[in-house]
Nucleic acid binder design. Structure first.
Length: 315
RNA sequence: ACUAGUUAGGAAGCU
């Protein structure tokens, strides 16, 4: 019954996962058989909370209850394994679905490509992309962006540009994600000017850069030792009333500490805390690295302790 | 069995 499914989704969205689980049980015990949608909804609810084990258990339950796993089930599981870095399991899911005659779609392939982006397996990502084309699956903005990101993370600028061109030629519109990945690619490759061009180009076609795009371009500037430019972006963002994310502070902190400008690094660290940013492991690690190099062991210990404290969310 | 509804994928910072 779809009323149940909808209710389960709403409950889990409002943090009432136990209620959603209860509903699921009620369905099983009462006359209403849960369908694929019910199982998938639960799997996604667990995934969103990082309860990967529970998501897996629902899949097992589907098998036991003789409910066919569908494209969405497999895609979600591939996404889960990809986020866990369990590429082999993700690949296994694709193999299984093909064997079972469940057709993968763009989303399935994109999830897998993303997992290769995380592990840096360019060859497999490309093979997956080509495989998708071969089965007549048309890549969309997500798929191309994922592919561009594979190259971006490796600093393979030429290849990223190639994929971007291919995307445009195919008539698929790039969006903020795509452009941000391109900026990141140029940042990694040390080509600031090109990164700047991307920022201009996107605005010309009416695509507004967001905080992620800005962080990426700041990163490009700092890698080219243009800290003033990076700082200018930060000022601009703040002046525009936007709230800089942790990552933006980290870019500045790391850049300044590498330039041996300890005061500035500390300044942004303090600003970040004052802004009430959530505790962030990478930010801590950057500061710890700084104090380590300065030989200030006390500070190092202090921060390490603080980092571990009362924060279950730190991964 | 068919059909319909509800469920899945992409971007930035440390080493």
């Amino acid at each position: 019954q779809r009323t149940y499914n909808l209710a389960m989704k709403l409950l889990s969205e409002r943090g009432q996962l136990p209620m959603a689980e209860a509903l699921f049980q009620e369905m099983k015990e009462g006359g209403v058989k849960p369908d694929q949608v019910s199982y998938n909804t639960l799997i996604c609810a667990y995934r969103d909370r990082g309860l990967m084990r529970d998501a897996e258990e629902i899949v097992d339950l589907m098998r036991r209850d003789n409910v066919q796993l569908d494209t969405r089930t497999y895609s979600t599981m591939i996404d889960i394994y990809s986020k866990q870095g369990e590429v082999a399991k993700a690949e296994g899911m694709l193999r299984e679905m093909l064997k079972e005659g469940v057709l993968p779609n763009v989303r399935t392939y994109t999830a897998l490509i993303t997992s290769y982006a995380r592990t840096g397996d360019v060859a497999k990502a490309e093979a997956t992309f080509e495989g998708m084309l071969q089965v007549g699956c048309t890549p969309d903005t997500f798929a191309f962006s994922a592919m561009i990101d594979v190259f971006a993370k490796k600093g393979m600028v030429k290849e990223a540009e190639g994929a971007f061109r291919r995307m445009v030629l195919a008539g698929i519109e790039p969006d903020v994600y795509t452009y941000s990945s391109m900026v990141a690619a140029y940042a990694k490759g040390g080509l600031v000017e090109k990164a700047e061009k991307v920022l201009e180009a996107m605005q010309q076609v009416g695509c507004a850069p967001n905080l992620i795009t800005f962080t990426a371009i700041m990163d490009a500037y700092t890698k080219d030792n243009r800290l003033e430019n990076a700082e200018a972006i930060f000022e601009f963002v703040t002046a525009a009333g936007m709230k800089p994310p942790v990552q933006m502070y980290t870019v500045l902190i790391t850049a300044y500490r590498k330039a041996n400008d300890i005061r500035k690094a500390q300044k942004y660290w303090k600003l970040m805390r004052k802004a009430g940013c959530p505790k962030d492991k990478i930010a801590y690690l950057s500061m710890i690295e700084m104090y380590k190099k300065l030989g200030r062991d006390k500070k190092v210990e202090e921060l390490e302790e603080e980092m571990e404290q009362d924060d279950p969310d730190l991964e």
